[in-house]
Design a protein around this nucleic acid. Sequence first.
DNA 1: CCCTGTGAACCCCTTCACAGCT
DNA 2: AGCTGTGAAGGGGTTCACAGGG
Lengths: 209, 209
Amino acid sequence: MVKVSNISISTIERLCKYHRILDDMIAQGITNAYSHELAAMAQVTPAQFRRDITSFGNFGNIAKGYDVTKLHQAIIDLLGTCNSKKVALIGLGNLGRTLLSYRGFAERGFEIALAFDKDNDKVGRVIAGRRCFHIDQLEEILPQYNVDMVILATTADGAQNLVNRLGKLGIRAILNFVPKHLVPLEGMFIEQVDISAKLEKLSYLLANG
Amino acid sequence: MVKVSNISISTIERLCKYHRILDDMIAQGITNAYSHELAAMAQVTPAQFRRDITSFGNFGNIAKGYDVTKLHQAIIDLLGTCNSKKVALIGLGNLGRTLLSYRGFAERGFEIALAFDKDNDKVGRVIAGRRCFHIDQLEEILPQYNVDMVILATTADGAQNLVNRLGKLGIRAILNFVPKHLVPLEGMFIEQVDISAKLEKLSYLLANG
DNA sequence: CCCTGTGAACCCCTTCACAGCT
DNA sequence: AGCTGTGAAGGGGTTCACAGGG
């Protein structure tokens, strides 16, 4: 059902958006929807929506539009989150602890399995159900857990060094909350969450949009 | 010095990245840099870097490359963050309070000036230096502050309604942490911070990158 | 009639390559 | 020699518009 082909990053990012919208529709008991309805909710053109969807399969029905449940499942399969993915968290400051208590991960198939910090006060404790280790133990402990990705929520100094250490441990995906541009090793992917950058973009749009 | 022209959104997003890199260089006392050096740090091609920069002015010197300080200031001017921008925060859960104590905003010219919540226990208090009002008072209080943007950190239910109310109050820019796709009114800009979407993207890249 | 799926056109961003300059 | 700035070419994502079908 799910075609394998080259899907552009732009399309993948929109699929995440569609994912949320389909969640809502399922919660409302809606079983079918036309591309123009879904597109309006996602703020894209109907043609773009159809193009995005057909890039990995055919889920439309000419009479009834798209099968909401099937499409929802297909997107989950494509994004590879059908099986729960284990994540490690590094940094247990305000942000790190907020992330630990965030329920949104679980409902999307992500599980923070363990945490690291450099502060000895936090090491050895169990915070929000997760064991916390010292960052010096990274090389020793991390391989024992079957972790796919790492969330970085430390301070800026030493963050690049952590990326390098994680790369050597075989970690290929990092979600970076550190407000600093980090350079991935060969084969790694780093997604930056830069709140200030978003505000700057909004600032520009306010002045020039 | 700063050209006025149509700059693409892609370029604006990269400018935010360059902004961080130039911060670092200034901190290190570096005064000049060539496009290939800056491009390597930002993980873009030298040609793209030069194209981005020349879209709003000429800051390069053939002998010494780019003047780091001038370029830094020009980006700040262009993004419109040269003057501090006031921001309101709605929602004082874990995430909201984390944002209140985040120091990164101030150093980028953003100031959370006040906060709103629906919980009466928080209303009337001063949290991390900001007064907290009840969300029912939004229409009464918000216009008294000269706010440019609003950060939404509430629960999903009622978030779209808040967007509509903010739009009527003349707010045109929203940074949305609510894990739900929200539709802007005419003329509004909404930037979504969707952590799960980033993890889904990484998940896809791990499987197909 | 109105839908999906899609070839083809279009458009815009990226990259190339070089003129001009030091 | 090496750099910036830029016209021109290239490539990829978006939009158009229609064939096919209920």
